[in-house]
């Protein structure tokens, strides 16, 4: 399987993603520069975390107009797998590849810590290796993770099972106390209608080796590989 990690000016998690794919998953991976106008030969594109374009104006607002984003959009339209992590998620929102927007955390603090996430749909390309309702321990690190979306879209996403991850406590209970940033309905990760575009605030690449305190992130990476292997 071949991954492409898209690098914007100000991305800072691209090396972590590259490392996990290359050294832990032992799959092919290449960096894709933000100025590329054409991407081909990839099975999955990763939009990593960071502060693309300094997060000026709004997180992801300028990155979405990078030349590479047209290529990412057409790749997604043709059913290609696209995962946006943290700032990558924000870019996907700004680009309209996923619905909704991010506000500042209600605490007004940058939050960097482990959180618990309940897998709400385990039959997606991103979570097929998780048991239904499995709790994953993966860190978040962001200032704008307070997800909002209009009511109709939210209802439709719930009905279609497109809310993939919710913030929860250690036992898998979704509660206000377990919500780190004020996100609507404790939403931590969502999919588009075709389930081939996935955005999530937590960083699975920071929790893919036991030495880092958790290897739960592997559930997501291995799901992608399983999906790809099955699809051929």
């Amino acid at each position: 399987m071949r991954f492409g990690v898209v690098v914007f000016p100000g991305s800072n998690c691209e090396a972590d993603c590259y490392h996990v794919i290359n050294k832990v998953l032992r799959e092919d991976v290449e960096y894709v520069w933000h100025q590329e106008t054409y991407v081909s030969g990839y099975d999955c594109l990763v939009l990593p975390g960071g502060f693309s374009y300094g997060d000026y104006l709004r997180c992801g607002a300028i990155a979405r107009f990078s030349p590479v984003m047209d290529a990412v959009s057409s790749f997604a339209r043709e059913g290609g797998l696209v995962i946006g992590i943290c700032n990558g998620f924000q870019i996907l929102l700004e680009a309209g590849l996923l619905p909704g927007a991010m506000l500042r955390n209600t605490s007004l603090h940058f939050i960097c810590r482990f959180v618990n996430l309940r897998v709400e749909n385990s039959s997606t390309p991103w979570t097929n290796r998780a048991a239904p309702g499995q709790v994953l321990r993966i860190p978040i690190a962001h200032n704008e993770g307070n997800y909002v979306v209009d009511r109709d879209t939210h209802r439709r996403m719930v009905e279609e099972g497109r809310i993939i991850l919710r913030y929860c406590d250690g036992e898998g209970k979704v509660s206000e106390e377990a919500n780190p940033n004020g996100a609507l309905d404790n939403i931590a990760g969502i999919c588009n209608e075709g389930f081939n575009v996935f955005g999530l605030m937590p960083h699975p690449e920071r929790a893919s080796e036991e030495i880092l305190g958790s290897a739960d992130g592997l559930v997501i990476w291995e799901s992608i590989m399983a999906y790809h292997a099955e699809r051929g």
Binding site: L103, R104, N105, T106, S107, L108, N146, V148, G182
Partner: peptide
């Protein structure tokens, strides 16, 4: 400005 009905954490603080 933040839209009506949208939470404004900085405004609330």
């Amino acid at each position: 400005s933040p839209k009506r009905g949208i939470l404004d954490p900085a405004g609330q603080a």
